[in-house]
């Protein structure tokens, strides 16, 4: 089992889209995928038609009670894709930071939880809220690799800087170093700003950045209306192809650093 966490403290950069698109391609390739929604807005859960406020169990309960493997499996929701299951989020998650404060070790809850279902999945993809808090810390601590989508525009670069700093500080608290891959998203080849931002990213982050780009593609929004993963909705769209190429690169990177050999 490999855990990839999609995170950026900046909102609207394509985190949820990236999580879903990668999950779709992985599932299509026959891998068993578990999605973990850690965003109280539950947009990932909602994407798959899950009304998480109607559920009795969600990621929230993992934080309030010790969960066995069976209990975690009960919390999972199936999706219309047989290879994709999801651990849904609820609004209640937003209260965690207040109720738990920074109780010792509470950053490791998700890591322990997914380890209990490791045999059932090949890939676990975690979607993060755009705020640094107990949820993002949990998702980061559980990750074998962190995927950081960043919009190809200058304001987003600033946010990226902050995100990397967070990782660096957090790294000091863990025994392993973080592996992360920056993914330029919403690239518009017709705008100069996009191209300039892309070049700047390459210059500053060279080997930490995927050399490709996720282009602007209206298929992403349309796919979400139909609650389909992009690779199912528009298999040969530019957006889907870009995510396929990203996945390829991530797998290569993971093998290089032997993340898959855990």
């Amino acid at each position: 089992m490999v855990v990839w966490t999609v995170a950026n403290q900046k909102g609207g950069v394509g985190k949820t889209t990236t999580t879903i698109a990668l999950a779709g391609v992985l599932a299509e390739q026959g891998h068993r995928v578990l999605l973990v929604d850690t965003d109280p807005h539950a947009s990932l859960s909602y994407y798959f038609g899950i009304e998480s406020e109607d559920l009795d169990l969600s990621v929230y309960e993992l934080f309030t009670q010790v969960s066995s493997r069976e209990q975690i499996l009960q919390t999972l929701c199936p999706t219309q894709y047989p290879n994709i299951d999801i651990l849904p989020a609820t609004m209640g998650l937003a209260t965690l930071d207040r109720s738990l404060g920074n109780k010792g070790g509470m950053g490791l809850v998700l890591k322990k939880a997914v380890q209990k279902v490791a045999e059932s999945y090949d890939y676990v993809l975690m979607d993060c809220p755009p705020v640094l808090g107990v949820l993002m810390v949990n998702a980061l601590a559980a990750a074998d690799r962190i995927i950081i989508p960043v919009q190809t525009e200058f304001l987003a670069l600033k946010g990226l800087d902050r995100m990397i700093k967070t990782l660096e500080i957090m790294q000091g608290e863990q025994d392993t170093s973080f592996k992360y891959t920056i993914v330029p998203t919403m690239f518009d080849k017709r705008t100069k700003a996009s191209i300039l931002a892309f070049k700047k990213l390459q210059e500053v982050y060279t080997n930490k950045i995927w050399p490709g780009v996720i282009p602007i593609d209206t298929n992403f929004r349309n796919a979400s209306f139909e609650q389909k993963v992009p690779s199912d909705f528009a298999a040969n769209s530019r957006g889907t192809l870009a995510y396929k190429s990203l996945l390829n690169y991530l797998v290569k990177q993971s093998m290089q650093y032997k993340e898959v050999e855990r």
């Binding site: 010792g104 070790g105 950053g107 490791l108 809850v109 107990v134 810390v137 608290e173």
Partner: peptide, 12 residues
């Protein structure tokens, strides 16, 4: 972060 990521004496 240190607080969140360090196991306390008492089990989490």
């Amino acid at each position: 972060l240190s607080e969140l990521l360090t196991e306390p004496e008492v089990d989490v």
